[in-house]
Amino acid sequence: MLTVLEPEGLYPDTALEQEILGPGVRVIRGGGRGGVEELPDSLCAEADGLFIFRHWLPGSQLHRFPKLKAVVRMGVGYDRLDRPALAARGVKVCNVPDYGTTEVADHAMALALTLRRGIALHHDLQRADPPAPWQYLETPLVQRAETQNFGILGLGRIGTAVALRAKAFGFRVVFFDPFLPNGVDRALGIRRVRGLEELLAQSDVLSIHTPLTRHTRGLLDEAALRRLPRGAVLVNTARGPILDLDGLAACLRDGQLAGAGLDVLPEEPPKEPVHPLLAAYRAREPWLTGRLIVTPHSAFHTPQAFEDIRRKSAETMRDVLVEGRNTNVIAADAD
């Protein structure tokens, strides 16, 4: 009999997983809520399959899993897994790329519109003591959508969903993605540019939708952000380490960027002492009033999306571990 571990205890039972995986698989829930390090060696020694959601799986822990054959990352990104170490042991690594697409796209648009319409700004000002006057405010944040280029970095499932939403709101949508074939722009009725610098130079709003790889880590540093038009808005619902927070802080402080919406941070959850930008945000320093929105990596979440994660993760584990398929398997040499 095969054994699959779900160490984080995400759901109240294992009934759905057991139904999908079948009678030849034993599903064990919990035992490592704080991390895989908490799992007893005896349990690790039995695991043929492992679900990973919030935890990290470093190579230093793999010797405790001598039977491990498949790891399913219960999400799109797989930077929490030591893929070279897993590949060296012949362990298949999978993700779940097709959940939460609409939620993340909605969230990215909500952040962009909340900033560009001055909603966060007026919200902050109207609850101040004393409240601001009952009138509009002239600010670089507030601009008409149809006068703005909405830049998308990475046109995968989520990037495409954002492009369609931005287009519906009247933005002029432009994207950069070197991995897509010719003609995608024509199919969607949006514009494509050939390089990152060209995208940055044109993006009044920039929404990040690229995966975190060795090539995209630190991709948007201060120099890159200063290529955006002055007064631009930046949204990141992808991965925190793609964006340099020092550069973001500098560009917000001097007005190069009018605003930013972040659902992800380089360190999650943030630990004390937190980055100075996050500290200023939490302290409600006046220079950030209405200009920075932070959400706790929650863009993916609805009750429906959380159920999708559960079902699709179990289906992927069944396909790979039980049936020997390659559903959602990440190639060992993938970036």
Rank of each mutant, 00 (worst) to 15 (best):
D129T: 13
G156F: 06
F171R: 08
V104P: 02
L121R: 07
R165D: 05
V96Y: 07
H55G: 06
L86P: 07
F175S: 08
L115S: 06
L111P: 01
R144W: 11
P140R: 10
D79I: 03
F65Y: 15
Q143D: 06
V72N: 05
R54Q: 07
L125M: 15
L57Q: 05
L111H: 09
P131K: 09
T101M: 07
A88Q: 13
L141A: 03
D98L: 12
R172F: 05
Y136I: 08
A110H: 05
L137Q: 15
D124R: 14
Q143R: 15
V173R: 03
V76R: 04
R83A: 04
G154M: 10
T114N: 10
G151V: 05
A70I: 04
A87S: 15
V162W: 00
P130E: 05
E37P: 02
P58K: 10
G156S: 08
D98W: 13
P97Y: 12
F53S: 09
Y78L: 01
F51S: 00
S42N: 02
A105C: 01
R165C: 03
L62S: 11
A120M: 14
Q126R: 14
T160P: 02
L81H: 04
V36A: 08
L137I: 14
V142T: 13
T160H: 03
P58N: 12
P97Q: 08
A105Q: 00
H122K: 12
G154E: 04
L115T: 04
I119C: 06
T160V: 12
F175C: 08
F175V: 07
C94Y: 06
D177F: 11
L111T: 01
A110R: 04
F51I: 05
R73W: 01
C94V: 10
